[in-house]
Simulated scan of single mutants.
Amino acid sequence: MVTSTSRPRAAKASPRAASRPDRQQAILLAAEKLFSQHGYHGVTIRQIAEEAGVPLALVGYYYGPKHELFHAIFAHWNQTIEERLAALDAAAVDPQDPQTLTRIVEAFVKPVIRLRHSEEGAYYAQLVGRELAYGSAEADRVLREFFDPMAHRFIAAMHAALPHASLGDVAWGYQFALGALLHHLVDDRVTRLSQNQNRAGDPEASDRLVRFIVGGLRAALPAPAPTRKPAIPSRRRQA
C-alpha cells in the first residue's frame, strides 16, 4: 500500500506506458533487488531498467533520477514502520511489569523478521539492513524522513520502561539493539560458523534475538539496588 504522500512522481502517462501499468511496480521491485544485492552506488539506472524489462527512459519517466527512485522504495514500504509503531502502541508501557521491555523489543524486531522471510519483502528488508548503515546522503535522507521519527518513539518507550536510566543511555541501548537487528538481516555466515547447525536468517531465531536485546539492555542499564535502612540497635535493659 502506498500512501498519498509516498506515491512515485506523477506524470501524464503516454499511451504506451498506460498499456503496461505493471511496469511501474516492476521498476520498483527491480531497484529493491539490485540495491539490496549491490548497494546504491553499485547499481545504474540502465541495470534497473534491464532487470525490470522496461525501456531505460521509462525509469526516469516514473521516478526521476536514481536518488528519487531509492527514496520511493522506502516511501512504498512505509507501512512496515506503521506496523511496528502499532505494535508498540499495543504494548502497555508499565515499568512495574517485567514483560514491558520484552513487548517493546518484540514490536521493534518481529515485524522486520517476518518481512525478511516473506516473498514480497525479502529484498526490502535486506536493503534496510545493508544500505542504511552507511552514511551516504541518500541513506541519511531516508533515515531522517522515515526511520528517525520511529526511533524517537521506541527510545521514549524504552525510557519509560527503564525510568532509572538517562535518556542518553537508553539512546545508546537503542543503537546497539538496532545493530543486532540489522546484522541479523544481512549476515549469512551463521550457517558455516555453526557448522551447518543454524540456518541463516532463520525466522525462528527472532525470539532469541529479542531475549538477547532485552538481556543486553537490562545488563547495560541495571536498576539500582534498593537501599536498606541501617538497623537500629536495640537498647539493652538496664538492671
Rank of each mutant, 00 (worst) to 15 (best):
2 V>Y: 04
3 T>K: 01
7 R>V: 13
8 P>D: 04
13 A>N: 10
14 S>T: 14
14 S>A: 05
15 P>E: 08
15 P>I: 13
22 D>W: 07
22 D>H: 02
27 I>L: 05
29 L>P: 06
29 L>A: 13
30 A>Y: 00
35 F>H: 01
38 H>G: 06
40 Y>K: 07
41 H>F: 15
42 G>T: 13
42 G>D: 11
46 R>H: 11
48 I>E: 01
50 E>M: 14
50 E>K: 15
56 L>C: 08
57 A>K: 12
57 A>Q: 15
57 A>W: 13
61 Y>I: 10
62 Y>R: 04
63 Y>M: 10
65 P>D: 04
67 H>A: 03
68 E>D: 15
68 E>R: 15
70 F>S: 13
72 A>G: 12
73 I>C: 07
74 F>A: 04
75 A>W: 03
77 W>N: 03
87 A>L: 04
87 A>K: 05
91 A>L: 06
91 A>E: 09
93 V>P: 05
94 D>H: 10
96 Q>W: 07
96 Q>D: 12
103 R>P: 08
106 E>Q: 15
107 A>K: 00
107 A>M: 03
109 V>C: 15
110 K>R: 15
112 V>L: 15
114 R>W: 06
115 L>M: 11
118 S>E: 08
119 E>Y: 05
120 E>F: 02
121 G>M: 04
121 G>P: 00
121 G>W: 02
122 A>P: 00
124 Y>L: 12
126 Q>V: 11
127 L>I: 06
133 A>N: 07
133 A>E: 08
136 S>L: 13
138 E>K: 02
139 A>S: 13
141 R>V: 07
142 V>K: 01
148 D>N: 15
152 H>M: 13
160 A>H: 12
162 L>S: 02
167 L>V: 05
169 D>F: 07
170 V>N: 00
171 A>E: 13
175 Q>I: 02
177 A>R: 01
181 L>F: 11
185 L>W: 02
186 V>G: 07
188 D>K: 11
189 R>D: 11
190 V>C: 14
191 T>N: 05
191 T>M: 14
192 R>C: 09
194 S>V: 06
196 N>C: 14
199 R>Y: 11
202 D>C: 06
203 P>T: 15
204 E>F: 15
205 A>W: 13
207 D>N: 14
210 V>W: 10
210 V>N: 10
215 G>D: 04
216 G>F: 02
219 A>D: 11
221 L>R: 03
222 P>T: 13
229 K>W: 01
232 I>L: 07
232 I>H: 01
232 I>W: 00
234 S>E: 14
234 S>Y: 13
234 S>Q: 14
235 R>W: 08
235 R>D: 08
236 R>W: 03
236 R>N: 02
239 A>S: 10
